[in-house]
């Protein structure tokens, strides 16, 4: 259970990729609306750092993205998910998943 995106460590995001994710969405509260004041701002910085790492090891920084939504924005949530999934589909499986498939 994560009470806030501010609690997400970079290593958790990287682990998702190690565990086979082709893309990771981090969805936090609207900026300025954090119950813990700056949790989502910290999360944004961490997502940016992980994107940098993924870019540097040729998995691709565009496979991780931060979104901000309020609890009442169900339709927007769906739209964001569809948009991101569409983007990841277009990118195809991440290079590590391709390598795993080839190795198998």
């Amino acid at each position: 259970m994560l009470p806030c995106t501010g609690r997400i460590e970079e290593t958790l995001l990287l682990e998702a990729f190690e565990n086979g994710a082709d893309g990771v969405m981090v969805i936090g509260c609207l900026e300025g609306d954090c119950h813990y004041l700056s949790g989502n701002i910290r999360a944004r910085a961490r997502v940016a750092r992980v994107a940098g790492i993924l870019e540097s090891i040729r998995i691709g920084g565009d496979r991780i993205r931060m979104f901000n939504l309020s609890a009442g924005e169900g339709a927007k949530f769906a739209a964001y998910v569809n948009e991101f999934v569409g983007q990841i589909r277009e990118l195809g499986p991440s290079s590590i998943n391709v390598a795993r498939k080839n190795a198998a």
């Binding site: 290593t11 990287l14 682990e15 990729f17 190690e18 090891i57 998995i59 590590i96 390598a99 190795a103």
Partner: peptide
């Protein structure tokens, strides 16, 4: 500790990607 985790994860991802 955190940097150990991030670096290790990064190395595993990069190395497995490279086969």
């Amino acid at each position: 500790e955190k940097e150990v985790q991030v670096l290790s994860s990064t190395l595993r991802l990069a190395r497995e990607t490279a086969g």
